[in-house]
Amino acid sequence: MANTLVQFRTEETARIKAVGICEKLGIDLQTYLRMCISRLIQENGIPFSMRVDDISDNRGVKAMKAASRIAAENGIADMTLDEINAEISAARG
């Protein structure tokens, strides 16, 4: 599947705030935007809410942060979805 570049303009203060929230959630802004597009398609609508003020004991967020740290430690943090699926298929085979 081919990748495409999506660009849009936003106010700098909004971008800075969004980056800060994403960092608190353990992801970067690009990952968040990819998640939004993927879920929008899956649910055929806006499917979820993620809030900073309710993540302190959130097991899902802790698991995402741990997975992100492990991926970075193993040099696989920048794998594409196709590469991830290929790894899973190879492991199952």
Rank of each mutant, 00 (worst) to 15 (best):
M1W: 04
A2E: 10
A2D: 03
T4M: 14
L5Y: 00
Q7P: 00
E11C: 03
E12M: 14
E12D: 15
T13I: 13
A14Y: 14
R15N: 08
I16S: 13
K17C: 06
A18H: 03
A18E: 12
V19D: 12
G20R: 01
G20E: 06
C22K: 06
E23N: 14
K24Q: 07
K24C: 00
G26M: 05
D28F: 03
D28M: 04
L29Y: 02
L29M: 04
Q30N: 15
Q30P: 08
T31I: 05
L33H: 02
C36M: 05
C36Q: 03
I37D: 02
S38A: 10
S38G: 02
I41S: 09
I41K: 12
Q42I: 05
E43R: 11
N44C: 03
I46D: 12
F48N: 02
V52H: 04
D53M: 13
D54R: 10
S56C: 04
R59A: 11
K62Y: 09
K62N: 12
K62V: 10
A63I: 04
A66Y: 02
A67Y: 09
A72T: 05
A72I: 07
D78T: 11
M79E: 11
I84R: 01
I84H: 01
N85E: 13
I88V: 15
A90Q: 15
A91D: 09
R92L: 14
